[in-house]
Design a binder for these strands. Structure first.
Length: 464
DNA sequence: TCTGTCTGCCCC
DNA sequence: ATTCTGC
DNA sequence: GCAGAATGGGCAGACAGA
């Protein structure tokens, strides 16, 4: 057995930066994957896409530029006998670094980084750094990687994709595909406490567009401005996961209790939106909810300050049975039977556009974000943005002024691409309301940069 | 030990 | 989250 | 139509200095 060097992986990454063509990237990666030893497949996949850990994994590297910079500067003294780094040895080092925490952790991490970096060539160094920062800049992430796994294993692309959306661990999926083949991939199924990627909705401009896309048999649900959550329950254990499969169970103890008190079924996965509410039950802005998110201290105190409410809208799994292939209307029926004392998202079923408009306007006037429009017969497609679900949000128009601008980064480094915005209040003074960087083409950035530089009164290298 | 600062990570 | 580009 | 890149605000955790 010959282990593959990290240098070979770095060369593959370098090769990927030389082409913009997806097919070529797919071929480069799949050829590389095919040559790997079994134990290298998963680490290689993570090192190529630059994430180290799967989405469900709570671990992180936690390395600052502050601690990496001195490491890179101290690299002059090259060790004479260089050991060849392998994919697995690099990966193991990253795992060790992720384990270090607490006082003095930065020091320990620095030492490990120094010994890691002192063994590498410039090319390896380049991609080790990109791995640490999670930005590979070679155009291969999950999407292209799934294609590469499909080509390398000779298995159907849609089966691999489905398995990934259900399992969430792309390294594991690659290993299963290449080792166990079709049989292994088909066996990948929903498991309790292993969150799946949630189904997503397409944006529509208005209800006419939604009705044109769907024809008939529509359900409209309130779209709440909060955190999308997937809740897994088995017996007395309840865990909450976000849209990106991160666990936030400990932040919302009252929700756990409510689930235990109101859902009797032992094994179940349901989905809903978690929102902050005031004492009258009216929705609070998303920012208020953020005070409870990822909090470790004073959870009880903030729980009193910012109450939350959970509105359920889907069921994915119940008593050992997957509900992914059950049509929307039947899923809703099951959900409403099981969670009798629980709030479901407010909903109507209608073919009448006037009725739909009234429903939408009610959602907005009650302080919500808009509505979701769902096809009654549609099944649940994990992780996919399909026409089966549409979202309609309200928009507000404002007259605003650009009062400052930041230089962009990456592809936008030559432009002022991040604008500080203000409205003019009744005293004719600027009231800063926020920043934006969105909604413009390259040519528009070019023009605006030119215009703004003509008007500039101050420039500190970052902000004009 | 307390406080300010920096930065990664997570949501929208 | 949104919006852009390149394929 | 898909995939990747770029972008902001709030929190915890770590360090440096008082």
């Amino acid at each position: 057995m010959t282990l593959t060097t990290f240098l070979e992986l770095a060369k593959v990454c370098e090769k990927l930066t030389k082409t913009t063509k997806t097919l070529e990237k797919t071929k480069i990666v799949s050829n590389f994957l095919s040559k790997l030893e079994k134990e290298e497949i998963s680490p290689a996949i993570f090192l190529i896409i630059g994430t180290i850990f799967s989405e469900t994994d709570p671990r992180t590297l936690n390395i600052n530029w502050k601690s990496l910079e001195p490491v890179l500067k101290s690299l002059k003294q090259k060790t004479l006998f260089q050991e060849k780094l392998t994919i697995t040895s690099v990966y193991k080092t990253f795992l060790k670094i992720a384990q270090i925490s607490g006082k003095g952790s930065q020091r320990k991490k620095k030492d490990m980084l120094i010994s890691l970096f002192s063994q590498v060539s410039p090319l390896e160094k380049k991609f080790l750094m990109r791995n640490i920062f999670g930005e590979m800049r070679h155009g291969v992430k999950e999407g292209v990687m799934i294609k590469a796994i499909s080509v390398a294993s000779g298995l159907d692309y849609s089966n691999i994709k489905r398995a990934y959306m259900i399992n969430g661990n792309i390294g594991e999926i690659g290993k299963i595909a290449l080792e166990d083949g079709e049989e292994g991939i088909k066996k990948v199924s929903i498991k309790l406490f292993q969150p799946i990627k949630p189904m997503l909705g397409e944006i529509v401009e208005d209800l006419n567009q939604a009705f044109n896309k769907h024809g008939k048999n529509l359900a409209l649900e309130y779209k709440y401005d909060g955190i999308r959550v997937q809740i897994h329950k088995s017996g007395k254990i309840v865990r909450i996961f976000t849209r990106h499969l991160k666990e936030i169970t400990s932040n919302f103890p009252e929700i756990i209790k409510k689930i235990l008190d109101n859902i009797e079924i032992d094994d179940i996965i349901v989905e809903g939106e978690l929102i902050a509410i005031d004492s009258n039950g009216r929705p609070l802005p998303f920012q208020d909810l953020m005070h409870r998110f990822k909090r470790i201290y004073e959870i009880k105190k903030v729980q009193q300050l910012i109450p939350v409410s959970l509105l359920l809208f889907d069921i994915i799994f119940c008593n050992g049975k997957s509900f992914l292939n059950i049509p929307y209307q039947k899923r809703w029926k099951k959900l409403s039977e099981i969670v009798k004392n629980f709030d479901l998202a407010k909903r109507i079923i209608t073919n009448n556009i006037d009725e739909a408009n009234i429903f939408y306007n009610n959602a907005i006037s009650e302080g919500h974000e808009g509505v979701m429009i769902k096809a009654l017969t549609s099944i649940y497609h994990p992780g996919e943005r399909k026409n089966d679900w549409l979202k309609l949000k309200s928009e507000i128009r404002l007259d605003i002024v650009i009062i400052a601008a930041d230089w962009g980064s990456g592809r936008r480094h030559k432009w002022l691409s991040n604008y500080h915005l203000a409205v003019i209040d009744e005293k004719e003074e600027f009231q800063v309301i926020g920043k934006t960087f969105k909604g413009l083409t390259d040519q528009e950035f070019e023009n605006i940069t030119e215009e703004l530089l003509k008007l500039k009164i101050n420039d500190n290298q970052y902000t004009v």
